[in-house]
Amino acid sequence: MNDMRIVERTVSTDTAKMTARRAQVYYGDNHALKDVDVDILDKTVTAFIGPSGCGKSTFLRCLNRMNDTVASARVMGEIKLDGEDIYDKRVDPVVLRAKIGMVFQKPNPFPKSIYENVAYGPRIHGLARGKAELDAIVETSLKKAALWNEVKDRLDAPGTGLSGGQQQRLCIARAIATSPEVLLMDEPCSALDPIATAQVEELIDELRSQFSVVIVTHSMQQAARVSQRTAFFHLGHLVEYGETGQIFTNPKDPRTESYITGRIG
């Protein structure tokens, strides 16, 4: 398998789903994210790469206002979803997060059964009428997350009893069960074996037909395989953002080049 194979770069649309302009994040006095401008395109997979601690997760959490739950975090600048400022006072973060799903860096299944974990979102948003529909949502979500075959006989077992990689796929299933418009994935494959990784990457590619996907990854190969757009972060700055093929074959910034060739990070 040629790992650096570049997937076809056709981007279905060029409309921006989310736009960030001069986005800043402070944790107390720590300026963690500086002047980030990004357009996340509709029906596209965008990869965020960069060394540890450069602010990838921080920026991801800005996109669905999860930083609101961190007391010390302050977000400035402008972030829009479909042309609407998501930090506007009139926007309800709860509604926003239902539209922008998230898979966290560390798997965090609820201490409930596998079924209840996946059914959680559909239940609180009233997406299913009746038990049969809910069952169907749970089943398709688990199938998409490549977990169905492993858990179909023990849907009542606690989700916390699964292995780390299975838990992460459960969290993916949980996130796609609410059918969000944008899916944010923070290192979804860091605990997965190659087979499950390939399945999740397949899922990401499949999801692209319905949503925008943003994926944070430390694997250059993965970024090259699954994404159409890549953003490289370094020390809180967005260094370079562009078409994945261009970033990996012909980076403009010397820092990007040394990172992808393994000299920094």
Partner: peptide, 25 residues
């Protein structure tokens, strides 16, 4: 906190999070 984050990330309100995730845990 990761439990609460998971719930908020799915678009649950604070009281739903308390009722369905925090109290059972």
């Amino acid at each position: 906190q990761a439990m609460r984050d998971g719930s908020f990330g799915l678009g649950a309100t604070q009281s739903e999070t308390v009722k369905r995730v925090v109290i059972p845990a």
